Amino acid sequence: MAAFQHTVRSPALFAGIGVHTGEYTRVSVRPAAANSGVVFVRTDVKDRDNVVPVSGEAVCKTQLGTVIANDAGVTVSTIEHLMAALVMLGVDNAVVEVDGPEMPIMDGSSLPFVRVLDRAGLRPQEAPRAFIEILDTIEAVEGDKRATLTPADGFEMAFTIEFPTAAIGRQTVDLAMDEAAFRTELADCRTFGFLHEVEALRAMGLARGGTMENCVVIDGDVILNPEGLRRPDEFVRHKALDAIGDLYVLGAPILGRFEGVCAGHGLNNALVRALLARPEAWRMTTLVEDLREAV
C-alpha cells in the first residue's frame, strides 16, 4: 500500500456508451491537487454548477448502479467500475471530466479503466495517503441481505451471492485485496443481467445501452454470450468489484474486512452511511508514522 497520495501523470482518455442511457460519452481523467479527492465534472452542463464531488452523501440513486449528484441536481451515473479501478490502482486525486450523464460501461468490467490508467501513469504527491481504519463492526441489513465492515490488518473482500438459476447458483469469493489481487482476481469480471428483465428495465429508462458486448446475459439457466464466462464465478467477483467502487465514495481506501451477502449498490451505500453515522467505529490513519517508526 502506498504511503503517499497519487494522481494521474497525464490525462486518461476513453469513450463509450452508457449501459442505461445508451448515450455516447467521452471521458478525461485528469491530474488533481493533493487532498482534493475524486471530483466529476459534467462538461456538457453549462447553465449551473457542473462539479460533482464524490462523497457518501452525494449518492442519490442506487438502482442497478451508483449515481452521484450535486446541490444543483447535476448527476453522474454508473461511476462504480471506474471508482474501483481508481482506488485499487492508488489514485487518490483526479478530476473526471465527462460530457454526458453516464460513465461509459466499456466491456462491463474495470479492466478497460485499468488499462487507460496504466497508460496515463501515476504521479506521487507529497501528502500522506489517508486510510479509513475500521475499529468496530459496522453493518447494514435488509431482510436476508447484509453488508458488514469489521476490523482487519489490511483490506479484505468477501462476498456471497445466490440466484435461482443453474447459470449462477450460490457463489462465494474471499480475498485479501491489494492492487495485484484486484488486477488478477476481479478487474476483468463483467456486470450481468437477465434477459427476462430487459423489457421492464428499458420501460423504466434503464439498460438502453446494454448488449452482450458489455454485459453477461442470462436466459433461464443459459448464458447467452457466445464467448461464455471469463471465470466460473465471474458473477460474485463482479459483485465484489462493485462493492470496492461503492466504498470509495468515502474518499479513502479501507483498512478492514468487507463482507457482503446478496448485497447490491443500495445496501453498499447504506453501509457507507452507517459508517459515517458512527465516527467512533473508525478513524482516519496514515502509514507515514508506521514508516518513520520502522526506520
Results as ranks from 00 to 15, higher is better:
residue 261 V to F: 03
residue 222 V to W: 12
residue 142 E to I: 06
residue 182 F to H: 08
residue 254 I to Y: 13
residue 146 R to N: 10
residue 8 V to F: 04
residue 229 L to I: 09
residue 289 E to P: 02
residue 291 L to R: 12
residue 217 V to Q: 01
residue 35 N to S: 13
residue 110 S to E: 05
residue 165 T to L: 09
residue 36 S to E: 13
residue 173 V to L: 09
residue 21 T to V: 07
residue 283 R to Q: 14
residue 88 M to I: 02
residue 30 R to V: 00
residue 104 P to H: 08
residue 53 P to L: 07
residue 139 E to S: 14
residue 207 A to W: 02
residue 166 A to W: 07
residue 187 A to K: 02
residue 136 D to E: 15
residue 54 V to S: 09
residue 29 V to K: 00
residue 57 E to S: 09
residue 32 A to Q: 00
residue 110 S to Q: 08
residue 292 R to K: 14
residue 52 V to F: 06
residue 89 L to D: 01
residue 168 I to L: 12
residue 45 V to H: 01
residue 208 R to L: 15
residue 233 D to V: 07
residue 234 E to Q: 15
residue 54 V to N: 00
residue 197 E to T: 15
residue 107 D to S: 13
residue 285 T to V: 15
residue 282 W to F: 15
residue 24 Y to V: 11
residue 33 A to R: 09
residue 283 R to P: 03
residue 171 Q to P: 05
residue 44 D to A: 12
residue 149 L to I: 04
residue 2 A to S: 07
residue 35 N to M: 13
residue 108 G to H: 04
residue 139 E to R: 10
residue 250 L to W: 12
residue 119 R to A: 15
residue 18 G to W: 15
residue 24 Y to A: 13
residue 98 V to S: 02
residue 67 V to R: 01
residue 280 E to P: 03
residue 81 H to W: 05
residue 284 M to G: 14
residue 124 P to N: 03
residue 259 E to N: 05
residue 36 S to C: 12
residue 11 P to A: 08
residue 217 V to E: 03
residue 247 L to S: 13
residue 106 M to N: 03
residue 29 V to D: 01
residue 173 V to M: 11
residue 261 V to Y: 08
residue 250 L to D: 11
residue 126 E to K: 12
residue 13 L to A: 06
residue 62 T to C: 08
residue 106 M to F: 06
residue 178 D to I: 06
residue 112 P to N: 07
residue 79 I to N: 11
residue 62 T to P: 03
residue 11 P to W: 11
